[in-house]
């Protein structure tokens, strides 16, 4: 009854690890940089796109993420995993983009309505089969994700789509482990409610 967790991008077999590649890049090996870009561009694009909800913005942020990785390669220290570092950069840039948008649209009814309430009891009129069999498009799921506030959106994307462990998420977002668990739980409940509304409508 459990889901198979989506594997995160990890080196397999004889492939060099991310940490080995960044170390090589720090010593001037540009090929190692190319390999890291190749390894991370798809999962990062997916993460950023789900975070900001716009393909164009996501691609710009992804460009900026890799450019920062190039400029600030010497700031990386091997005490942290490379994936944690690069996802932290991307997440911070995505949050900055959302803050810019918030400034542009200072007040929006839609955002106001998406405050993080605790879950409500499920509607008994919708049968589980109806919910499970219903066709919810990607766009509708994306819309439900975007209704979450950024702090909840980020953790659920990292956990359920990117497949990071709670410890890794705590490092990426820089919050305590307990807070990560609580946010993931609340975000799931909120999404569950919203997707159910979509099925009902």
């Amino acid at each position: 009854m459990t889901f198979k967790e989506k594997p995160a991008t990890r080196p397999t077999g004889t492939q060099p690890s991310d940490e080995e590649l960044i170390a090589r890049f720090q010593q001037g090996d540009a090929y190692a940089y190319d390999l890291l870009v190749k390894r991370y561009k798809d999962p990062l694009m997916n993460y950023i796109y789900r975070f900001v909800g716009s393909r164009t913005d996501a691609e710009d942020i992804l460009q900026e993420t890799f450019l920062r990785m190039y400029k600030n390669k010497h700031y990386y220290r091997e005490i942290a995993k490379f994936s944690t570092w690069i996802y932290t950069i991307a997440g911070n840039l995505a949050k900055t983009e959302l803050r810019k948008r918030k400034r542009r649209h200072f007040f929006s009814i839609n955002n106001y309505m998406s405050t993080d309430k605790d879950y409500e009891l499920p509607d008994k009129n919708i049968t589980p089969d109806k919910y499970a069999d219903s066709t919810i498009t990607d766009a509708e799921i994306q819309k439900a994700i975007e209704k979450l506030s950024p702090k909840f959106r980020q953790v659920i994307l990292l956990r359920d789509i990117q497949g990071f462990s709670y410890e890794e998420i705590a490092n990426i977002v820089n919050i305590p482990l307990g807070t990560v668990k609580s946010r993931v739980n609340r975000a799931r409940l909120r999404l569950q409610q919203d997707l159910k509304k979509i099925v009902r409508d």
């Binding site: 798809d42 997916n46 789900r50 393909r55 994306q142 659920i156 359920d160 999404l191």
Partner: peptide, 8 residues
């Protein structure tokens, strides 16, 4: 969530 299409 896990079966969402991958954006590249």
């Amino acid at each position: 969530l896990q079966s969402l299409s991958v954006v590249t």
